[in-house]
Amino acid sequence: MKALLVAECRQGRLAGEYAELFGFARALGAATSLVLVGNPEELPGFDGRLHFADAREYGEYSPDVHKRLVLKAVEAEKPDLVVFMHSSYGWDLAPRVAAAMRAAQVSEVSGIGEGAFVTGCCNGKMRRTVRPLTPRAVLTLQPGAFPAGTPCGSPEIIPIGTSTETPVELLRYEPPAAEGIDLSRAEVVVSAGRGVGRREQVELVRALAEALGGEVGASRPVVDAGWLEHGRQVGSTGQTVAPALYVACGISGAIQHVAGMKGSGFVLAVNTDRDAPIGEVADLLVVADLAQFLPALILKLRV
């Protein structure tokens, strides 16, 4: 089994998740090579062939050009699998490579089956096994699903090149909106999710945070609805927190949210759905309606 791993470069930096690609390959027992369009000052350390193109020439986000570069490496390596992280780079580029190879793609892989890959569905509530029917396959890996490998050594660098013609051009980066609150230092974070149902119920979440001496956080739908400010969003597109106590109120537990809070010491989840995927990371799941349970809890805490 041969795996071609696709590393990525974000604003000049080698994205550290490439070590998870190696972790996956190790779990699979696959031989590895790597392809990277990146910064020559930021090369990954590993023992093997690195197909490399300079991002100063080929851009950091230029998907048509990167597709052609990855395909050069595919041509040279003839891998059974081409493996990306399920990141903004990976989910954008992987299907282009898969389409060019006429290969099956399995997205957001979180486990390995027999000749098949386990992937979550229904927002992480359910899972299934997907088996490629094509001789070669393209995968994207769920971040955090495979323990990072510890690749080391210095790679043999093989330069790759292609034309830079593209209908898609990255004009600039914009930094994240100024964060009002640094949740990463909070001892207790009490977050509101879509399950709070109405804007008024956010006040209950706020009152619980106050009773616990903590900060208020939010999942993405609550921020999108304008119920809480973006500076309080926890998750892959918000802040990463690791408080001693994390209380998830009406949060289903989508992967993107869990990515931002799974390092918490103790997780209390309150949800009406006893099958909600938040149960997977929770230490305590209370199956209850927030409108009834939160006031009762606040009262008990104030005694």
């Binding site: 979550g120 359910m126 299934r128 997907v130 006893r274 149960g279 209370v286 809890l297 008990k300």
Partner: peptide, 29 residues
């Protein structure tokens, strides 16, 4: 098709997760 699916099932909860159900006051305690 290029791929086939099987084994659709519920994602298991972490073994250490304690699930509590009941009335609000009792739960709060």
């Amino acid at each position: 098709p290029l791929a086939a699916a099987s084994g659709f099932c519920r994602h298991e909860r972490s073994a250490s997760c304690l699930v509590l159900e009941g009335g609000a006051d009792d739960l709060a305690g």
